[in-house]
Simulated assay, not measured.
Amino acid sequence: MRRLLKPRVLLPAVLLPLLVLLALAGQEWRLFERAWFSVQEWRHAAEWQGRSLWLPDYRVTVEAQVIDGLSDDVSALTYDPDRRSLFTVTNQRAELIELSLAGKILRRMPLTGFGDAEAVEYISPGIYVISDERAQRLFKVHVDDNTRWLDAADSEQLSLGLGLNGNKGFEGLAYDSQGRRLFVAKERDPLRILEITGFPGDEQRLNLQVTDDQRRDRRLFVRDLSSLQFDERSGHLLALSDESRLVIELDLAGRPISTLSLLRGMHGLKRSVPQAEGLAMDEQGTLYLVSEPNLFYVFAKPAATE
């Protein structure tokens, strides 16, 4: 018994389980990949700073501003370049809500028949796509100055049902207007980014295609996906993760090239972003972010804030 209590016997017996637990935690949270990328990120900074968004340069300019008049969970964000405003959806009391670029409510439109409305994306003037997370349905809707409510029965719909697993379905949307691709983020289990052509309906509708890039998805060192944003200028895709508190910029080949951390002390943040759910970007590259239940953030490069 005394032999078992000797330090040279006891120490390995304690350290081995601890190391196993640390390794499992590191794998679960993708900590090793994230740490290695942080080293690589600055090594290729000179290569990418002039031809990418380069997220490390962003600083918070509006932090944790409460969206007055809104207590329900905001679940997405998209920018409308025609109206120069933002749109979000809530899923507890389902609404499509228009916000000013300062995070103020401009109007609220109740949603009927959209299920678990989780994401909204601007497609073209007056045209949006809304996703139903649980049923993995997409709805093409029309919104103009006179719109006061939306009924799913009036919309063009697409149902996919890929690996249905409850509240871990279609969490984010982004649209490439040049390539006419709709990116759809599946939250997790497994985490995936689908690319859909032919929806919303146009002359390509009969050529509906749904593809993914498993190699790209495996490179995403995050636990989940909450939102997507496509940058028309660079062709790069931004992926937001709530659980990892991170935004990742992916290049044309789907490789991570830069990140924006949502943790306290990073990018000027006084506190960590609690539950980031929606990400949008305007023509100047300014990033807008919403966090449940009703917080609003803005990130911009210093030159853009002067």
Score class of each variant (00 low, 15 high):
Gly69Lys: 06
Leu228Arg: 01
Gln204Phe: 14
Asn294Arg: 01
Leu101Asp: 09
Asp242Val: 08
Gly265Trp: 07
Arg107Gly: 01
Gly268Glu: 15
Ser131Asp: 11
Asp72Leu: 04
Ala153Lys: 10
Gly126Trp: 07
Asp282Ala: 02
Val14Asp: 05
His44Glu: 14
Trp29Tyr: 15
Ile97Met: 01
Glu133Met: 00
Gly198His: 02
Glu63Asn: 02
Gly254Glu: 09
Thr305Arg: 00
Leu250Lys: 04
Pro200Cys: 00
Trp36Asn: 08
Ser244Met: 00
Asp72Phe: 11
Phe183Met: 05
Pro56Gly: 03
Gln27Ser: 09
Glu277Trp: 13
Ala45Thr: 13
Glu121Met: 06
Thr61Phe: 12
Lys6Gln: 12
Arg271Asn: 14
Met109Leu: 09
Leu208Trp: 10
Asn294Tyr: 05
Ala276Lys: 05
Ser100Pro: 13
Arg30Tyr: 15
Pro256Phe: 00
Gly198Lys: 00
Leu252Val: 14
Gln92Met: 06
Ser291Thr: 06
Ile67Val: 15
His236Gln: 11
Ala94Leu: 10
Thr197Asn: 01
Gly166Pro: 08
His267Ala: 02
Asp82Asn: 12
Ala25Ile: 08
Gly254Arg: 04
Trp54Gly: 04
Glu187Tyr: 01
Ala152Asn: 04
Pro200Arg: 01
Leu295Trp: 14
Ala76Glu: 14
Leu10Ile: 13
Ala153Pro: 10
Val89Thr: 12
Val14Phe: 14
Glu41Arg: 09
Leu162Ile: 14
Lys168Cys: 00
Arg59Thr: 14
Asp176Phe: 11
Ile248Gln: 07
Leu246Val: 11
Pro274Glu: 08
Leu191Met: 10
Leu250Gln: 10
Pro81Arg: 00
Ser226Ala: 12
His44Gly: 08
Leu260Phe: 02
Leu101Cys: 05
Asp68Ala: 13
Phe199Asp: 11
Ala152Phe: 02
Glu277Lys: 01
Ala185Val: 01
Ile130Phe: 10
Gly126Leu: 03
Thr147Cys: 00
Arg255Cys: 07
Arg192His: 04
Leu263Phe: 14
Arg180His: 13
Val184Phe: 08
Ile193Tyr: 04
Glu41His: 08
Arg271Asp: 15
Ser291Asn: 10
Ser52Asp: 13
Val39Gly: 06
Gly285Asp: 10
Tyr79Glu: 06
Arg51Glu: 13
Leu86Pro: 04
Arg205Glu: 12
His236Ile: 08
Asp231Cys: 05
Asn91Lys: 05
Arg93Thr: 15
Thr259His: 01
Trp54Cys: 06
Arg255His: 13
Leu15Tyr: 13
Arg34Ser: 12
Asp189Glu: 15
Ala153Trp: 07
Leu237Ala: 03
Val66Gln: 12
Ile193Cys: 01
Tyr175Asp: 10
His44Ala: 04
Leu237His: 03
Pro125His: 01
Thr147Pro: 07
Ser75Asp: 15
Gly169Leu: 00
Arg2Ala: 02
Leu18Val: 15
Ser38Pro: 11
Pro7Met: 02
Val9Pro: 03
Trp42Lys: 01
Thr197Met: 01
Leu260His: 02
Ser234Asp: 09
Leu138Arg: 03
Ala300Trp: 08
Thr211Lys: 01
Ser100Ile: 10
Thr305Leu: 05
Glu249Cys: 11
Gly169Phe: 07
Arg107Glu: 06
Leu31Met: 11
Val62Asp: 12
Arg245Ala: 12
Gly198Tyr: 05
Ser71Gly: 10
Glu292Val: 06
Ser291Val: 10
Pro7His: 02
Arg51Phe: 07
Ala94Gly: 04
Ala174Gly: 09
Ser241Ala: 08
Ser100Glu: 11
Leu70His: 10
Glu118Ser: 06
